[in-house]
Protein backbone atom coordinates (compact mmCIF):
# COMPACT_ATOMS: atom_id res chain seq x y z
CA UNK A 1 0.00 0.00 0.00
CA UNK A 2 0.97 3.62 -0.53
CA UNK A 3 1.65 5.29 2.81
CA UNK A 4 2.60 8.55 1.18
CA UNK A 5 -0.92 9.35 0.04
CA UNK A 6 -1.87 9.68 3.72
CA UNK A 7 1.17 11.70 4.79
CA UNK A 8 2.01 15.38 4.56
CA UNK A 9 5.35 14.85 2.87
CA UNK A 10 6.31 18.52 3.18
CA UNK A 11 6.20 18.21 6.97
CA UNK A 12 8.98 15.62 6.99
CA UNK A 13 11.41 14.98 8.53
CA UNK A 14 9.42 14.35 11.69
CA UNK A 15 10.66 15.35 15.12
CA UNK A 16 10.76 11.85 16.65
CA UNK A 17 14.16 10.54 17.78
CA UNK A 18 16.11 7.67 16.26
CA UNK A 19 14.72 4.43 17.61
CA UNK A 20 11.39 5.93 18.69
CA UNK A 21 8.41 3.62 18.22
CA UNK A 22 5.86 6.30 17.35
CA UNK A 23 6.39 5.92 13.59
CA UNK A 24 5.56 2.22 13.84
CA UNK A 25 2.22 3.11 15.44
CA UNK A 26 1.54 5.84 12.88
CA UNK A 27 2.07 3.37 10.05
CA UNK A 28 -0.34 0.94 11.70
CA UNK A 29 -2.96 3.71 11.95
CA UNK A 30 -2.52 4.42 8.25
CA UNK A 31 -2.77 0.71 7.35
CA UNK A 32 -6.02 0.41 9.31
CA UNK A 33 -7.49 3.50 7.64
CA UNK A 34 -6.48 2.17 4.24
CA UNK A 35 -7.83 -1.30 4.94
CA UNK A 36 -11.20 0.10 6.04
CA UNK A 37 -11.33 2.45 3.06
CA UNK A 38 -12.03 5.52 5.15
CA UNK A 39 -11.94 8.77 3.21
CA UNK A 40 -9.36 11.29 4.36
CA UNK A 41 -11.97 14.07 4.44
CA UNK A 42 -14.02 12.08 6.94
CA UNK A 43 -11.21 11.48 9.42
CA UNK A 44 -10.22 13.77 12.26
CA UNK A 45 -6.98 12.86 13.98
CA UNK A 46 -6.74 14.62 17.32
CA UNK A 47 -3.93 14.77 19.86
CA UNK A 48 -2.96 16.37 23.12
CA UNK A 49 0.57 17.44 23.98
CA UNK A 50 3.81 15.48 23.96
CA UNK A 51 5.65 13.34 21.43
CA UNK A 52 2.42 11.55 20.43
CA UNK A 53 0.89 15.02 20.14
CA UNK A 54 2.93 15.73 17.04
CA UNK A 55 1.32 12.86 15.09
CA UNK A 56 -1.54 14.93 13.58
CA UNK A 57 0.87 17.30 11.87
CA UNK A 58 2.15 14.51 9.65
CA UNK A 59 -1.09 13.03 8.33
CA UNK A 60 -3.34 14.37 5.60
CA UNK A 61 -6.61 14.30 7.55
CA UNK A 62 -8.52 16.97 9.45
CA UNK A 63 -5.97 17.36 12.22
CA UNK A 64 -6.14 18.98 15.62
CA UNK A 65 -3.37 19.44 18.17
CA UNK A 66 -5.15 20.39 21.40
CA UNK A 67 -4.03 21.22 24.93
CA UNK A 68 -2.30 18.75 27.27
CA UNK A 69 -4.59 15.86 28.20
CA UNK A 70 -7.71 17.24 26.55
CA UNK A 71 -7.78 15.52 23.16
CA UNK A 72 -10.73 13.34 24.19
CA UNK A 73 -12.78 16.39 25.21
CA UNK A 74 -12.23 18.19 21.91
CA UNK A 75 -12.91 14.93 20.04
CA UNK A 76 -16.17 14.45 21.93
CA UNK A 77 -17.34 17.81 20.56
CA UNK A 78 -16.28 17.01 17.01
CA UNK A 79 -17.95 13.59 17.05
CA UNK A 80 -21.22 14.92 18.47
CA UNK A 81 -21.32 17.82 16.00
CA UNK A 82 -20.41 15.60 13.01
CA UNK A 83 -21.31 11.99 13.92
CA UNK A 84 -20.29 10.69 10.50
CA UNK A 85 -16.68 11.63 10.97
CA UNK A 86 -14.18 9.01 12.14
CA UNK A 87 -12.32 10.16 15.21
CA UNK A 88 -8.82 8.87 15.89
CA UNK A 89 -7.32 10.20 19.09
CA UNK A 90 -3.63 9.73 19.86
CA UNK A 91 -2.30 10.26 23.34
CA UNK A 92 0.72 9.36 25.41
CA UNK A 93 0.67 7.63 28.79
CA UNK A 94 1.00 10.95 30.61
CA UNK A 95 -1.39 12.82 28.36
CA UNK A 96 -4.06 10.08 28.55
CA UNK A 97 -3.85 8.96 32.16
CA UNK A 98 -2.26 11.76 34.21
CA UNK A 99 -3.43 15.21 33.10
CA UNK A 100 -6.13 13.66 30.91
CA UNK A 101 -7.09 10.85 33.28
CA UNK A 102 -10.51 12.24 34.07
CA UNK A 103 -11.44 12.55 30.39
CA UNK A 104 -10.09 9.04 29.78
CA UNK A 105 -12.30 7.32 32.35
CA UNK A 106 -15.35 9.38 31.43
CA UNK A 107 -15.00 8.77 27.70
CA UNK A 108 -14.94 5.08 28.63
CA UNK A 109 -17.94 5.40 30.96
CA UNK A 110 -19.87 7.24 28.28
CA UNK A 111 -18.79 4.69 25.65
CA UNK A 112 -18.57 7.56 23.19
CA UNK A 113 -17.63 6.63 19.63
CA UNK A 114 -13.95 7.59 19.64
CA UNK A 115 -10.86 5.52 18.89
CA UNK A 116 -8.06 6.19 21.32
CA UNK A 117 -4.55 4.98 20.54
CA UNK A 118 -2.32 5.25 23.60
CA UNK A 119 1.41 5.51 22.89
CA UNK A 120 2.67 4.07 26.17
CA UNK A 121 6.42 4.60 26.52
CA UNK A 122 6.52 4.75 30.35
CA UNK A 123 7.89 8.30 30.30
CA UNK A 124 7.32 11.98 29.45
CA UNK A 125 9.55 12.12 26.39
CA UNK A 126 8.94 15.65 25.08
CA UNK A 127 9.77 17.35 28.36
CA UNK A 128 12.94 15.38 28.98
CA UNK A 129 12.15 12.02 30.52
CA UNK A 130 10.16 12.59 33.70
CA UNK A 131 8.25 9.73 35.36
CA UNK A 132 4.72 9.10 34.10
CA UNK A 133 1.72 7.22 35.55
CA UNK A 134 2.93 4.07 33.77
CA UNK A 135 6.60 4.18 34.78
CA UNK A 136 7.08 0.88 36.64
CA UNK A 137 7.94 1.06 40.34
CA UNK A 138 11.68 1.34 40.89
CA UNK A 139 12.49 2.48 37.34
CA UNK A 140 14.51 5.59 36.65
CA UNK A 141 13.42 8.89 35.15
CA UNK A 142 14.68 12.46 35.40
CA UNK A 143 12.30 13.01 38.33
CA UNK A 144 12.92 9.60 39.93
CA UNK A 145 16.71 9.66 40.35
CA UNK A 146 16.47 7.10 43.18
CA UNK A 147 13.94 4.93 41.37
CA UNK A 148 10.19 5.43 41.02
CA UNK A 149 8.36 5.25 44.38
CA UNK A 150 4.96 5.26 42.61
CA UNK A 151 2.79 2.40 41.38
CA UNK A 152 1.90 2.34 37.70
CA UNK A 153 -1.52 2.37 36.08
CA UNK A 154 -2.56 -0.56 33.92
CA UNK A 155 -4.13 1.47 31.13
CA UNK A 156 -6.11 -1.34 29.52
CA UNK A 157 -7.55 -2.62 32.80
CA UNK A 158 -8.48 0.97 33.65
CA UNK A 159 -10.28 1.47 30.33
CA UNK A 160 -12.09 -1.84 30.71
CA UNK A 161 -13.19 -1.13 34.28
CA UNK A 162 -14.36 2.35 33.32
CA UNK A 163 -16.68 0.97 30.64
CA UNK A 164 -14.96 1.04 27.24
CA UNK A 165 -16.52 -1.42 24.82
CA UNK A 166 -13.26 -2.40 23.09
CA UNK A 167 -9.82 -2.52 24.72
CA UNK A 168 -6.73 -4.20 23.33
CA UNK A 169 -3.07 -4.08 24.26
CA UNK A 170 0.07 -4.86 22.33
CA UNK A 171 3.57 -3.59 21.59
CA UNK A 172 5.34 -1.95 18.69
CA UNK A 173 7.13 -5.27 18.13
CA UNK A 174 3.85 -7.08 17.40
CA UNK A 175 2.81 -5.24 14.25
CA UNK A 176 0.44 -7.94 12.96
CA UNK A 177 -1.50 -7.85 16.23
CA UNK A 178 -1.39 -4.08 16.17
CA UNK A 179 -3.03 -4.11 12.73
CA UNK A 180 -5.73 -6.51 13.85
CA UNK A 181 -6.53 -4.62 17.05
CA UNK A 182 -6.54 -1.27 15.34
CA UNK A 183 -9.00 -2.44 12.69
CA UNK A 184 -11.23 -4.00 15.34
CA UNK A 185 -11.10 -0.81 17.38
CA UNK A 186 -11.94 1.38 14.40
CA UNK A 187 -14.93 -0.81 13.53
CA UNK A 188 -16.24 -0.96 17.08
CA UNK A 189 -19.18 1.25 18.02
CA UNK A 190 -18.47 3.11 21.23
CA UNK A 191 -15.21 3.88 22.96
CA UNK A 192 -12.22 1.86 21.77
CA UNK A 193 -8.77 1.87 23.28
CA UNK A 194 -5.65 0.33 21.80
CA UNK A 195 -2.77 0.59 24.22
CA UNK A 196 0.58 0.13 22.55
CA UNK A 197 3.86 -0.25 24.38
CA UNK A 198 6.31 1.85 22.40
CA UNK A 199 9.98 2.57 22.96
CA UNK A 200 11.66 5.77 23.97
CA UNK A 201 15.39 5.00 23.88
CA UNK A 202 16.32 8.64 24.38
CA UNK A 203 14.66 9.07 27.76
CA UNK A 204 13.53 5.70 29.08
CA UNK A 205 16.11 3.40 27.49
CA UNK A 206 19.11 5.44 28.57
CA UNK A 207 17.87 5.58 32.15
CA UNK A 208 16.84 1.91 32.33
CA UNK A 209 19.40 0.01 30.30
CA UNK A 210 18.25 -3.41 31.49
CA UNK A 211 15.12 -3.07 29.31
CA UNK A 212 17.19 -2.15 26.26
CA UNK A 213 19.12 0.97 25.43
CA UNK A 214 18.59 1.38 21.69
CA UNK A 215 15.35 1.14 19.76
CA UNK A 216 16.24 -2.32 18.48
CA UNK A 217 17.21 -3.58 21.93
CA UNK A 218 13.97 -2.21 23.35
CA UNK A 219 11.99 -3.96 20.59
CA UNK A 220 13.73 -7.23 21.46
CA UNK A 221 12.86 -6.65 25.09
CA UNK A 222 9.21 -6.15 24.11
CA UNK A 223 9.29 -9.42 22.19
CA UNK A 224 10.89 -11.38 25.02
CA UNK A 225 8.80 -9.95 27.82
CA UNK A 226 5.33 -9.96 26.31
CA UNK A 227 2.87 -12.73 27.01
CA UNK A 228 -0.67 -13.21 25.82
CA UNK A 229 -3.71 -12.87 28.06
CA UNK A 230 -4.44 -16.56 27.47
CA UNK A 231 -0.99 -17.57 28.63
CA UNK A 232 -1.16 -15.20 31.58
CA UNK A 233 -4.29 -16.96 32.80
CA UNK A 234 -2.25 -20.10 33.40
CA UNK A 235 0.51 -18.30 35.28
CA UNK A 236 0.62 -17.17 38.89
CA UNK A 237 1.14 -13.56 39.96
CA UNK A 238 4.85 -13.97 40.62
CA UNK A 239 5.48 -15.34 37.12
CA UNK A 240 3.54 -12.51 35.45
CA UNK A 241 5.49 -9.81 37.30
CA UNK A 242 7.50 -7.69 34.85
CA UNK A 243 5.70 -9.15 31.84
CA UNK A 244 3.61 -7.10 29.44
CA UNK A 245 0.32 -8.91 29.00
CA UNK A 246 -1.09 -8.38 25.52
CA UNK A 247 -4.40 -9.23 23.91
CA UNK A 248 -8.02 -8.13 23.69
CA UNK A 249 -9.05 -7.13 27.20
CA UNK A 250 -12.68 -6.55 26.33
CA UNK A 251 -14.86 -6.59 23.22
CA UNK A 252 -18.46 -6.17 24.22
CA UNK A 253 -21.75 -5.05 22.74
CA UNK A 254 -22.90 -2.01 24.59
CA UNK A 255 -24.96 0.97 23.42
CA UNK A 256 -22.71 3.83 22.39
CA UNK A 257 -23.27 7.40 23.49
CA UNK A 258 -24.41 8.37 20.01
CA UNK A 259 -27.05 5.66 20.02
CA UNK A 260 -28.21 6.70 23.48
CA UNK A 261 -28.36 10.35 22.52
CA UNK A 262 -30.39 9.58 19.41
CA UNK A 263 -33.00 8.14 21.77
CA UNK A 264 -32.93 11.39 23.74
CA UNK A 265 -33.53 13.34 20.54
CA UNK A 266 -36.43 11.07 19.67
CA UNK A 267 -37.98 11.60 23.10
CA UNK A 268 -37.50 15.37 22.86
CA UNK A 269 -39.33 15.42 19.55
CA UNK A 270 -42.32 13.41 20.74
Amino acid sequence: MDYLQYLRKDKMPHIWCDGCGNGIILKAIIRAVDKLGWKKDDIALVSGIGCSGRTPGYVDFNTLHTTHGRALSFSTGIKLAKPNMHLIVVSGDGDATAIGGNHFIHAARRNIDLNLIVFNNYIYGMTGGQASPTTPTGKFASTTPYGNPDSPFHISELAKAAGASYVARTTTYHTAKMDRYMQQAFQNKGFSVVEILTMCPTSYGRANKETGETGVEMLSFQKENSISLEKAKEMDEEEIKGKFVTGVYIDRDKPSYLENYQEIKDKANN
Binding site: A44, V46, L64, T66, T67, R70, L72, S73, F74, S75, T76, G77, I78, K79, L80, A81, K82, M85, N102, H103, I105, H106, Y261
Partner: peptide, 22 residues
Protein backbone atom coordinates in the same frame (compact mmCIF):
# COMPACT_ATOMS: atom_id res chain seq x y z
CA UNK B 1 -26.71 18.25 21.37
CA UNK B 2 -26.44 18.87 25.08
CA UNK B 3 -23.79 17.02 27.00
CA UNK B 4 -22.90 17.21 30.66
CA UNK B 5 -19.15 16.71 30.76
CA UNK B 6 -16.95 15.40 33.56
CA UNK B 7 -15.51 18.80 34.41
CA UNK B 8 -15.24 22.45 33.37
CA UNK B 9 -12.11 21.82 31.31
CA UNK B 10 -13.76 19.06 29.30
CA UNK B 11 -16.81 21.26 28.75
CA UNK B 12 -14.94 24.00 26.96
CA UNK B 13 -12.79 21.42 25.17
CA UNK B 14 -15.91 19.80 23.72
CA UNK B 15 -17.27 23.21 22.78
CA UNK B 16 -14.08 24.08 20.86
CA UNK B 17 -14.25 20.71 19.09
CA UNK B 18 -17.92 21.07 18.17
CA UNK B 19 -17.32 24.54 16.76
CA UNK B 20 -14.38 23.28 14.70
CA UNK B 21 -16.81 20.72 13.28
CA UNK B 22 -19.22 23.54 12.40
Amino acid sequence: TFIQMEDEIASIGAVVGASIAG
